[in-house]
Design a protein around this nucleic acid. Structure first.
Length: 199
DNA sequence: AAAACGATCTACT
DNA sequence: GTAGATCGTTTTG
């Protein structure tokens, strides 16, 4: 069967984890059955030195779980929606990877029920959209994703070399461009490329 | 207590 | 491509 990713997998620098999460499978079991989605887009947030990270200004009630051990979830609200991250590196570092888009695999009916009136392609294309489809909210903040229980991430397909690409971070003003965003090339469920900065 | 803000989405052009 | 919605969290007075 499919094994949950280990704590060691997440106990590395965020860009490495963000890159290798591509192709992995997010699974959630509910009373209605199982939902699976292939991770196709991610974004790394470094620790406290990173201006764009929620932990840049230290620990608050909202971001507390981001200072926890690697492999636990950090779920926060933004614009009346939720976003789902996985904590990376050792406890106290404050780094994480944001899951930006999934390719729906199984349990699509269940996802559609949570996301009425949306076209199939938009079901899980975007960080807040996938949270709605999977029913992820602040209740999941701090959940240990290495346990392989009701919500976890397992190995997916073996990716051929060059199946992924990286780009600069968007949506934040910085003096330097950082290669922190990753996505599977030629996947129709990524949200990024149409919105990325181009020369 | 009030105001400002944000790792976004939808609808519409 | 973008204006407007939406509301919890943090910051400010």
């Amino acid at each position: 069967m499919y094994m949950a990713l280990s704590r060691e997998f997440f106990d590395r620098d965020p860009p490495a984890v963000a890159c290798e999460l591509l192709g992995k499978v997010l699974t959630r079991h509910t009373r209605k059955g199982v939902m699976k989605g292939r991770i196709v887009e991610t974004e790394a947030y470094l620790g406290q030195g990173d201006e764009a990270s929620h932990t840049a200004c230290g620990k608050t009630r909202r971001n507390a779980s981001m200072f926890g051990p690697p492999g636990i979830a950090y779920v926060y609200t933004i614009h009346a929606r939720f976003c789902f991250n996985v904590v990376t590196e050792s406890a106290g570092t404050g780094s994480a990877v944001l899951i930006r888009a999934l390719e729906p695999l199984t349990g699509i009916q269940q996802m559609r029920e949570r996301r009425r009136r949306c076209v199939a392609r938009d079901l899980t294309r975007g960080p807040a959209r996938l949270c709605e489809a999977f029913g992820l909210n602040r209740d999941w903040d701090g959940w240990d994703l290495t346990l392989g229980k009701r919500l976890w991430i397992s190995r997916g397909d073996v990716l051929r070399s060059g199946a992924w690409a990286q780009s600069s971070r968007i949506g934040i003003s910085q003096d330097k461009e950082l290669p922190l965003r990753f996505f599977l090339t030629d996947n129709r469920f990524i949200s990024g490329p149409s919105r990325l900065n181009r020369p």
